[in-house]
Nucleic acid binder design. Structure first.
Lengths: 237, 237
DNA sequence: CGGTACATTGAGAGATATCAACAGGCGTGG
DNA sequence: CCACGCCTGTTGATATCTCTCAATGTACCG
């Protein structure tokens, strides 16, 4: 959880050529607006485990995730951690009405973000209803994801949690990168545990059980979904 | 979970006089806009346990809760239930991008809502950036609440869950109705259990324990917070 | 080669769930 | 007016899932 102090470099490449634009808030913008936005943003890179912003820090910036994966988490005073989500390219972070961030965000592996000053971004969106609607759309999608996750945390067994996580994670990656049978898991077992409301041991045991049952194949840094139907049955139940 | 078929009555009283306007989306509107909105909305009343809208139903309307309390919940195929939130006056429901509701909402006690057709409301907000920003604000507040609840569901003990719930619920009521030492609990123990990811028995036992410890006093339909400091310590931990 | 971080596995403990019985309030109907 | 049934909530005994604590295994890196 090192902290980066770099100011970042101006956006070189035109936003119009941005590979993840169609997934991000920027999908709502026309060419002129994109050019305007190019002057407001800065590209910043983070190495693995660097903190992009921390819980209770002042919300000076908003971020558009360009590349990599981030974990978003909240800490209790005694150190217990709950990961409230993993961010993928196109996700828009730091959009809050309060003066301080309500959760921390750090990099899982190398990460590139497009950073905007909160005030200049606020000015930029002020009278752009199409962009506001787009931001709304993303916020509502996040809220829906959060509600699904509450069901998982409150009402599902360890096995169901793990199966659901693998399928949801795969689906998100498929959205971005297209179909594939192996699911990369860049996050650690501890991250998965803190996301699912389990301990690392229970996650590990559940992975092993799913492998014994020939539902998944465990590889370093990824799993292979062998029996999607059975996994889906577990996740639906 | 009866279903109301009434079309509702036109909004009689001017929106400008609406008691909960300052808490709702409408806070962003000026007088002319409020008058316009009056023609779009219909007041509808629901009795206890009536369903306002159900999971998987088509999203034909959006709702502004005027009076009463609603439970918002998701059901798993096998009947397990997770309440994702309780709605109070001022809360804005049904705002989703998908064609179907992702959760159900029904009345806890008598409820009054202001209903708008989804399409006419969409047209109304289309080019009103101030209203879009207000909707955004509410969505972000909901998201933040959801994230807090994920921490509770994933990482807290039964006692911490109950204490946190009581304090949060009290705080929301204080916002609406002003300070009070007794906290009305219109929802059933089963509702509380399904909100906190517990069973009804555990909720009941935890209430009893908190009463034995002189943290709360249990009354029919409400609890009295006797030792707020201790409750807050439990909720913070 | 040794060290470190991460993951897996095992044994035992503990918190919450499950199953079951009981109590209290309330409306209904005799 | 009281008896009855129903519903909600409480309490008790036991089961079980997941956690905790501890040991071992494995990959990576200096």
């Amino acid at each position: 959880m090192k902290i980066s102090l770099v100011a970042g470099e101006p956006i070189g490449q035109p936003c119009a050529d941005c590979g993840i634009r169609c997934f991000s808030v920027c999908a709502a913008l026309d060419k002129a607006e994109l050019r305007e936005l190019e002057h407001l943003g800065r590209h910043i890179h983070f190495v693995s485990c660097e903190t992009v912003f921390g819980q209770e820090e002042l919300t000076t910036s908003v971020y558009n995730l360009l590349e990599g994966v981030m974990r978003l988490y909240k800490l209790l005073p005694d150190g217990r951690r709950q990961i409230v989500g993993f961010a993928l390219p196109g996700d828009f972070l730091g959009m809050t009405t309060s003066a301080r961030h309500s959760f921390s965000a750090d990099a899982i592996g190398a990460v590139a973000v497009c950073r905007f000053s909160r005030t200049s971004f606020a000015r930029f969106i002020e009278d752009k209803p199409h962009l506001l609607r787009r931001i709304n759309e993303l916020a509502i999608r996040e809220l829906s994801r959060a509600q699904d996750h509450m069901v998982l945390l409150g009402r599902r067994s360890a096995e169901e949690k793990v199966a659901t996580f693998l399928l949801n994670w795969r689906d998100r990656l498929v959205q971005l990168r297209g179909p594939a049978n192996t699911v990369p898991l860049p996050m650690s077992r501890q991250d998965i545990a803190d996301f699912l409301g389990l301990t690392i041991e229970t996650v590990s045991r559940t992975f092993t059980k799913l492998e014994r049952d020939r539902v998944i194949g465990i590889q370093p840094g990824s799993v292979c979904l062998l029996d999607t139907a059975r996994a889906e049955a577990m996740a639906a139940a």
